[in-house]
Design a protein around this nucleic acid. Structure first.
Lengths: 225, 225
DNA sequence: AAATTGTATATTGTATACAATATTCCAAAG
DNA sequence: CTTTGGAATATTGTATACAATATACAATTT
């Protein structure tokens, strides 16, 4: 006998969340209940449970008697989210600066240095990985559960709108320098330089998010990737 | 014919939220579905919709096949929330300092000055009101929807654990001085003083929240008020 | 008496039928 | 040809019946 630890609704919630965040279900699409029920093999009750959760998280928008739609974030909303992320992560960096794991940062630094010698293709991948790791190391220093959860949530919500700049631009030196500045500042125990570097990093990212989203929207290209 | 703009579930959600935040349903209580259905006059479907929303917000805790329980925030969780509030509101104060409505602050200031001449009973009420207004004026200066929502949410979640210090302490001068420091700093355009004042204000509040909650829990007194 | 097991009961989880509402589309009027 | 009205249809909202699971309690064993 299999013990059922999770309810169906919970599983459906996770599956739908993954589908939306991965861009498999794009913004603006209607979440037709019957259709999703058939696709996921459950009845409407657990499906609706999942929808309600997603509505409550602001990922879906509910209109009475019309259904749920995947929320399309407006240009200024993405900007506000990125701004919130910038302020929050800089705040964490400043407040919990002493608790940041220098050893992890050092490893990250060495990984990047090694990657610069392996050609552009590998460097691209290394930068993408390092980017996520850097944010993770910083946020891990914070021992406030609520702040950590909020930052992670914002990272998730931004994900469908993210642009992998490394995959487009040929000149990786500027991108690399941006990360290097933050890493060096932390290793040199310079709070202000680190915060300034992280802040600048977000600022350039934010422009990319917005400009790209705007371009895609205007040209009608799907946000799926 | 009445147009139904809100679903039953939404209404039930609001009613339950109010009941919990007002302390009418205290932490640790089981949300028995049948019982609540009878009390609220709805069937289980919209009731469960409301419960799911509250679970997703972290206000209730769900255990499979056992039901939902009003979440009891631990001492350190309340501390973390208060710390988060402090950091967030100070951040807003600093970042959007120029946009703070000086006129509103001036009105608030005058209201407090007037209240000091009307005896302790009125002053108590005035301070309580001024406290909420001050937080509201500061947060209103922030034009980032996500940040505003988060601050409001934290304020709500803290509410059941709040202690109305004014109602207990006889000496109002210290409490008054704490607010006055923030107000004066804003009116004098001194960012750092204002942030320091607000930060200190949160620090004293936080101690009260925690100590009182601890005391109540230890002596077994209900958190209802 | 303490521990264990089985059964009755309470409670939640899921499916489904029905009700209320929105949307579509066609016909008729202007 | 455009617009308006209203049935027909599609879709969501709600109630309820049934299934799965947890809890409580009594009977049995050691």
């Amino acid at each position: 006998m299999k013990i059922q630890r999770r309810s169906l609704g919970e599983g459906v919630y996770r599956r739908l969340l993954r589908l939306i965040l991965d861009g498999k279900i794009t913004a603006g699409k209607w979440m037709r209940e019957e259709k999703l029920c058939k696709e996921l093999g459950v009845s409407r009750t657990p499906l609706r449970e999942a929808l309600i959760r997603l509505v409550q998280e602001g990922i879906l928008e509910q209109q009475t008697h019309r259904g749920c739609i995947v929320r399309q974030l407006e240009k200024d909303e993405i900007g506000q989210m990125m701004e919130y992320r910038r302020l929050l992560e800089c705040m964490v960096l400043r407040e919990w600066f002493d608790k940041i794991d220098r050893h992890e940062i050092k490893i990250l630094d060495e990984k990047l240095i090694a990657a610069t010698k392996t050609g552009n293709e590998n460097l691209r991948i290394a930068i993408l990985e390092a980017d996520e790791e850097l944010h993770e190391i910083i946020i891990s220093a914070c021992d406030n559960r609520f702040i950590v959860e909020q930052v992670r949530r914002l990272q998730l919500l931004c994900r469908p709108y993210r642009v992998l700049r490394c995959a487009e631009s040929e000149d990786l030196t500027a991108i690399l320098a941006e990360r290097k500045k933050i890493i060096d500042a932390i290793l040199n125990d310079s709070v202000e330089d680190a915060v300034a570097g992280l802040s600048a990093h977000f600022e350039t990212s934010r422009k990319y998010y917005i400009d790209d989203t705007l371009a895609k929207t205007e040209s009608g290209i799907s946000q799926q990737f």
